[in-house]
Write a protein that binds this DNA or RNA. Structure first.
Length: 261
DNA sequence: ATGGTCGACTCTCGA
């Protein structure tokens, strides 16, 4: 497939972001959109609004927190949610695995971790380990696999403003950066970085930092990773800042990558 | 800028 567009977007509540999502999907016509932090129970998911735009959605959410969804112009052949390893939290609202023919797409909302001395931080690191196990058990680097989502880690000094002040941050601590690099070492390529080698390429700008978007004080924590043959087929990648400047923006902007598979 | 602002929900938590 030529020009297959895959995108990831942490919407921070899909219902309060629907006006943005509709406009953006109308304009972008991405083929596969992976959403995080939908913050909605399945019974309240706005599937009909997406269907009107031609998108079929599969979703797994809960009240107030977390929630992932995969919206696509062509529905996946198969989709499952969670890590399925019997461990808690099972990631049911943090991980989706969709298969489109021989292309596998994993959509992740990795736990943020709160602070490095909070129990959620080791839980976050454990989540990465469990993800690695999932990859080992289901794939090899020779398979066609794309992993996208809010991984809640800025992998290098280039991926955050003032890295020297962020060494103890749960999205920049050396242990979580190691977890990210373990993913790459497994056999994944940072597709966004491949196409965008420059500084200041962020996907998240904190609400709490005044005029963070205008000053570009942000983080690159939303990622598109792919196995080598898929990465090799990628044509371009970008952060779409449009939705971030629209009315009632999310903290995050969509990250888009195009593949000729 | 150790403050700040959203979203969802009971007022405080998560990010």
């Amino acid at each position: 497939m030529k020009g297959l567009k895959i995108a990831t977007f942490n919407v921070n509540s899909i219902r309060s972001r629907m006006h943005i999502l509709k406009r953006w999907l109308h304009d972008s016509r991405v083929d596969i959109l992976c959403l995080q932090e939908t913050k909605v129970k399945n019974e309240d998911f706005p599937a009909e609004d997406l269907a009107v735009l031609g998108y079929k959605a599969a979703y797994s959410g809960e009240k107030s927190y977390n929630g992932v969804a995969v919206a696509s112009l062509v529905p996946p052949d198969e989709i499952r949610f969670g890590l399925g390893d019997g461990e808690e939290p099972d990631g049911f609202t943090r991980m989706a695995h969709a298969r489109f023919g021989d292309l596998n797409v994993i959509n992740l909302y990795i736990p943020q971790g709160k602070s490095i001395d909070h129990p959620d931080y080791p839980m976050k690191l454990r989540f990465f380990e469990r993800l690695m196990k999932y990859l080992d058990e289901n794939f090899s680097p020779g398979d066609k696999l794309v992993i996208v989502g809010d991984l809640n880690v800025a992998p290098t000094d280039m991926d955050v403003t003032s890295p020297e002040r962020k060494r103890d941050h749960v999205c920049f601590h050396e242990d979580v950066k190691k977890a990210f690099s373990n993913l790459l070492d497994w056999g994944l390529v940072d597709v966004f970085r491949k196409h965008r080698p420059g500084e200041g390429e962020f996907s998240f700008w904190d609400y709490r930092v005044k005029n963070s978007l205008e000053r570009n004080i942000g983080w690159r924590i939303d990622h598109v990773l792919a196995t080598p043959q898929v990465a090799e087929s990628s044509k371009e990648a970008w952060v779409d800042r449009g939705p971030r400047s629209w009315e009632k923006p999310s903290d995050h902007a969509p990250v888009v990558a195009v593949f000729d598979l």
